[in-house]
Design a protein around this nucleic acid. Sequence first.
DNA 1: CGTCTATGTTGACGCTTGTCGATTCAGGTG
DNA 2: CACCTGAATCGACAAGCGTCAACATAGACG
Lengths: 113, 113
Amino acid sequence: MSNAEVCCSPVTERPMSAEEAETAARMFKALGDPVRLRLFSAVASHEGGEACVCDISDVGVSQPTVSHHLKKLKEAGLLTSERRGTWVYYRVEPAVLAAMGRLLVGSSAGALT
Amino acid sequence: MSNAEVCCSPVTERPMSAEEAETAARMFKALGDPVRLRLFSAVASHEGGEACVCDISDVGVSQPTVSHHLKKLKEAGLLTSERRGTWVYYRVEPAVLAAMGRLLVGSSAGALT
DNA sequence: CGTCTATGTTGACGCTTGTCGATTCAGGTG
DNA sequence: CACCTGAATCGACAAGCGTCAACATAGACG
């Protein structure tokens, strides 16, 4: 259900419809908070493309707040989570980065590594 | 002063610092509202890369609200404005799209058209 | 100058959001 | 089982945000 597939043609191609904008804005909004952006970057740059909460929770806010932001990122379709024993691991939804990049630069930014 | 040059290395490269996140989040936040995203797309996709307010103000909200959102986009460094006679024209700051794209996909998405 | 049109600004309103402390849940360990 | 640690949820609060109607400003035109 991740918004990645649905959304969208590049912003420079034609004016976005209300529906497209609604979907895309939800993803941008999720990255529109400094703490969330740091958490997201921490996960995305972590080895293996995934990280335990304990690895990334040092962003200067309380533990409930970290949990809250991770939930938001998950709801936006940017992260997925999985519990393994004591710890919970978050990983980046790969298609999302490509989709958002394509939305901005239009070109073949969809070509992933 | 546009945030484009300052910001940043790709999110997947290393965890963002608090300062980087603050800067980048401001740009994502600006695109995190459906109405603003539609306005931005309308300008970006308009011929010549610029548009008069009168050309794009049909997004379902009142005129003051349109003006308010355009101001926000301007403050975020995504748009610039210029008055020419009766009308005010907005245009996309070109480096910004490339910078945000690079932030997401990491690759050589900076290569513009 | 007076008036008309195109944008911007102000002030107010309700809703959303980021944050925390307290609590709860989940799993491991003794 | 009791206890401890990692993580999520709850409840509350202040701050921020999107929206509008009313008003203000800027330029064109008579």
